[in-house]
């Protein structure tokens, strides 16, 4: 039963991940990523980690990805432009992908060869009570650090998006448009980009 569920959701996750990279439209990519996140949450449930699964749906799918979708809709992004300058990146990406894939198979092979150790069937590890207890006793310092990190992120986000002086910003955009038109006329794609 658990094996069947694992292969179902693993297949779903991989399919969604491939579609995330394949699609040029950012909103399609976002929907695919949501698919990956939800499948992983289901796998976490089969791994007896219900708290992490719920938090995964709540934080990743419910907050971070809503923000991403919001930004995509707000900026009204078009399709990705084909890569015309850094063409060698395809080779680099493909090579790196192959190396990582080989490494994955090596890990699979190596871990499978280890004589079977008994699965620890302690189902209570993932319960909220145990996670909360560990979080506020043994791992209190990391939790505090993460809290400060989040505070810094909030301040940073506000400062980044704050509009300083409206006229200046429009000027910048005008310049940018003029620069691009000029570059297009000359036909110099290096300046145009």
């Amino acid at each position: 039963m658990v094996t069947a569920l694992f292969f179902l959701f693993a297949g779903l996750a991989i399919a969604c991940a491939i579609s995330l990279v394949y699609h040029k439209n950012p909103l399609y990519s976002a929907v695919s990523l949501i698919g990956v996140l939800v499948s992983l949450a289901c796998i976490y449930v089969t791994l007896a980690a219900p708290f992490i699964a719920a938090v995964q749906v709540l934080i990743y799918a419910g907050a971070i990805m809503v923000l991403v979708v919001f930004v995509i809709m707000l900026l009204n992004l078009e399709e990705d432009r084909p890569l015309n300058r850094l063409r060698y990146l395809y080779a680099v990406g493909g090579g790196l992908g192959l190396i990582l894939l080989a490494q994955t198979f090596f890990i699979f092979y190596a871990v499978s060869r280890v004589p079977k150790q008994p699965v620890n069937v302690d189902e209570t590890v993932g319960e909220t009570l145990n996670i909360g207890r560990a979080m506020y006793t043994e791992y209190l310092l990391p939790v505090e650090i993460v809290g400060i990190l989040l505070l810094m992120a909030i301040i940073g986000g506000v400062i980044l998006v704050r509009r300083l002086a409206q006229p200046e910003l429009t000027l910048v955009v005008d310049n940018e448009l003029a620069r691009r038109n000029e570059a297009e006329e000359i036909g110099d794609y290096r300046i145009g980009l």
């Binding site: 992908g97 990582l100 994955t104 198979f105 699979f108």
Partner: peptide
Amino acid sequence: YLALSGILFTI
């Protein structure tokens, strides 16, 4: 599980 994780990381 490690294999799935590795494949996702590669992608």
